[in-house]
Simulated scan of single mutants.
Amino acid sequence: MASIDIQHPHSMNPAHARQAVQDIADKLAERFGVEYRWNGDILDFTRSGIEGRIALLPEQLHVSAQLGFLFGAMKGPIEAEIRRVLEERFS
Rank of each mutant, 00 (worst) to 15 (best):
A2I: 05
A2E: 10
A2P: 09
I4E: 10
I4W: 13
D5Y: 10
D5W: 02
D5H: 11
I6T: 05
Q7I: 14
H8Y: 08
H8P: 00
S11A: 13
S11G: 09
S11R: 11
S11L: 11
M12V: 03
P14C: 14
A15P: 06
H16A: 07
H16E: 11
A17M: 01
A17E: 01
Q19E: 15
V21P: 00
Q22M: 05
Q22V: 03
D23Q: 10
D23C: 03
I24E: 05
I24H: 07
K27T: 08
E30Q: 13
E30I: 01
E30H: 14
R31V: 08
R31H: 12
F32G: 03
F32W: 05
V34S: 04
V34T: 09
V34F: 06
E35H: 03
Y36R: 04
R37H: 13
W38V: 07
N39S: 14
G40T: 03
G40M: 04
G40H: 06
D41R: 05
D41I: 02
L43G: 06
L43F: 02
D44G: 04
D44R: 03
F45M: 08
R47S: 00
R47D: 00
R47T: 01
R47N: 01
S48T: 12
S48N: 14
S48G: 15
G49H: 10
G49T: 06
E51S: 14
G52V: 00
R53A: 12
I54G: 00
A55H: 03
L56F: 00
L56Y: 00
L56K: 02
P58M: 10
E59V: 09
Q60P: 13
Q60H: 15
L61A: 10
L61N: 03
H62G: 12
V63W: 04
V63T: 12
A65K: 02
Q66K: 12
Q66S: 15
Q66D: 14
L67V: 01
L67T: 02
L67N: 01
G68C: 04
F69C: 03
F71L: 08
M74F: 14
P77Y: 08
P77I: 03
I78N: 02
E79W: 09
A80I: 08
A80G: 14
A80Y: 09
E81C: 15
R83Y: 02
R84Q: 15
R84A: 10
R84H: 15
V85H: 07
V85N: 07
V85Y: 02
V85A: 09
L86N: 01
L86K: 01
E88S: 07
R89N: 10
S91I: 07
